[in-house]
Design a protein around this nucleic acid. Structure first.
Lengths: 336, 336
DNA sequence: CTGAAAGCGCTTACAG
DNA sequence: CTGAAAGCGCTTACAG
């Protein structure tokens, strides 16, 4: 920097000023400095900048619990792409952290912030049971963060889909197609998204004058054998169904496999619909319809919201919450 | 830090020494300092540390070109998990950058390093045509990096599978199962991995006394319609086949769909095998066999190698290259 | 083994 | 609008 200052015939302070683009500077001087920087291929030391300004221009995207599973889910990959592209536009760097326990996450996030290594966080895949601890800790320490997903019990800035509405819409869509006995297949996770979707599903069922029976909600893990077992069990319990909604896209493959192995035709005998788009859904036969949540946009909006929080901490009290639209992608697994 | 020093009754320098764990310190003093840090919940400012020590303890994982496609591939998700866990053990932070063009990547990587924001890079998904520019630029600027994948024409530290051997093994495996007309389905990418696998495939064919015809190597994109079209074209060209190896796991789904729609039974009429494991492969019917490349280990090893490079730059001339084992996961798409 | 001091490369009130 | 100076919070030769 000193060298640039000398080359441009000004003081280091002035170089800093054109760099930060803050105080007004004569166009002439500004150009001289800019040229000098160009010629010398000057690159400012970020650490020095961060130390002085107390800002790192780095945010961190975190995934909690079972990172491997979650990351393999293309939903999160897309979110990550959205964040990355949005961050690039603002010249922010993106850090990435996977956690295996909630305690680890709390500790590390607070530490990263105190260390001034990271200005804020985008939190995702938080279990309901973890939210309490995590959100409270972050808020106490005044760590800026945005959550992907929502919470009934906690006030926090968040970006999310309207899970109740989406699930209502999905269920309604099946009903409109003539399906009457709709199974809801869900992982046994205590997450708000699960509760919300169950709620939306029930609302649609009831509104349509169909009978809402809790037995039609099946809890099972997303491994194939779990899905098959759950469906077999339902059958044995005398539960007949003409369609299935799965909460994870990967579960829909197992549902399809089940139907095919049991001689049920998809979509005529059984319709299949899942949440979240994924690259394999249109490559199986029949291809599987889904509710697309627009994860890339979700990521981009999460970044923008976080930036607002970082820039204007006072506003963080407002806890802005943004709901994004989603849509149904129609494929062969539902009758037309 | 000053406060800690005061509380412990020592100088800041001493605090720094116990922090960096370098110079010898009396156990007694060390404990006093440690206790003081604990009590005050002292967290060192990373930026100051980095500024002084010229080390950021941050590495960056980069994905070049079509990040969305690539990231959705569970291979890279697994690599990322491997890197993340390995980095955590060494208390390193992980930064993440997606690039849309090679020029962008070169510029940004060099900049991040010069800014002292990042100590080194893990490079992946580099096209052969980009390698020249990228590797040369990084080496010229003395930016430490490790490449996932290998290169014939460039000397660089890398972690990779032996693609020739893996492909040879996969082809041999099919031949041993009795398949005689093996189609190789590959994306039209100018990447070493593609060349190597073609080579291994040809070697196995020739060695087994089967005739090696270039028409059995089909180039097509991984979209469903591309795969179907390629297979239809082959058929029209009078190429009959009893098995298919696909280079991308997602392509195997389309190959399966093709066979099923044309009344060919898998695995009896046509066997299917793909490279890279993926969560959906065991959930389709029949489930699809694959060559598992052990991506998590790949990521972990990449990190370790990079760390060596950063710690001992002199050794970077050695360009260590590590080859990891892979294995075939047997599923239903191949006869037993 | 430890302390005082200089230095890392920036930013930003404070004067002018 | 600009410069001189202090300061950000560490590390690390240099003495002792």
């Amino acid at each position: 920097m000193k060298d640039v200052a000398r080359a441009a015939g000004v003081s280091p302070a002035t170089v800093s000023r054109v760099l930060t683009n803050k105080a007004n500077t004569t166009a002439e001087i500004k150009n001289k400095v800019l040229n000098a920087m160009e010629e010398m291929k000057y690159v400012p030391n970020i650490n020095a900048q961060s130390l002085s300004s107390n800002r790192s221009r780095t945010i961190c995207f975190t995934i909690a619990r079972n990172p491997k599973e979650i990351l393999g889910n293309s939903f999160f990959s897309d979110v990550l792409c959205g964040i990355s592209d949005a961050a690039k536009l603002e010249d922010y760097n993106l850090q990435f952290a996977l956690f295996h326990t909630i305690e680890e996450q709390v500790e590390k996030c607070v530490k990263l912030f105190k260390q001034k290594q990271v200005d804020g966080f985008i939190l995702t895949s938080i279990r309901s049971s973890d939210k309490d601890l995590l959100l409270k800790s972050m808020q106490e320490k005044k760590v800026p963060f945005v959550m992907i997903g929502s919470s009934l019990t906690h006030r926090a800035s968040s970006i999310h889909n309207d899970n109740v509405r989406d699930s209502y819409m999905a269920t309604k869509y099946l009903i409109d197609k003539g399906y009457k006995q709709i199974l809801l297949l869900t992982p046994p996770l205590k997450q708000d998204v699960v509760y919300d979707r169950i709620h939306g599903y029930q609302r649609a069922i009831e509104e349509s004058g169909l009978k809402s029976t809790p037995e039609y909600i099946l809890y099972c893990n997303d491994e194939e054998e779990d899905v098959i077992r759950a469906l077999d069990q339902a059958k044995m319990d005398g539960i007949s169904f003409d369609s299935v909604i799965t909460m994870e896209s990967i579960m829909s493959l197992s549902a399809l496999k089940y139907c095919q192995s049991r001689g049920m035709k998809v979509p005529e005998d059984v319709g299949i619909l899942c949440f979240n788009n994924a690259p394999y859904l249109d490559k199986v036969s029949p291809s599987i319809s889904c509710v697309d949540l627009n994860p890339t946009l979700l990521g981009a909006e999460a970044f923008k919201l976080l930036l607002d929080l970082i820039d204007q901490p006072s506003k963080s009290l407002v806890n802005k919450s943004i709901t994004l639209p989603s849509r149904i992608i129609e494929r062969q697994s539902i009758v037309t």
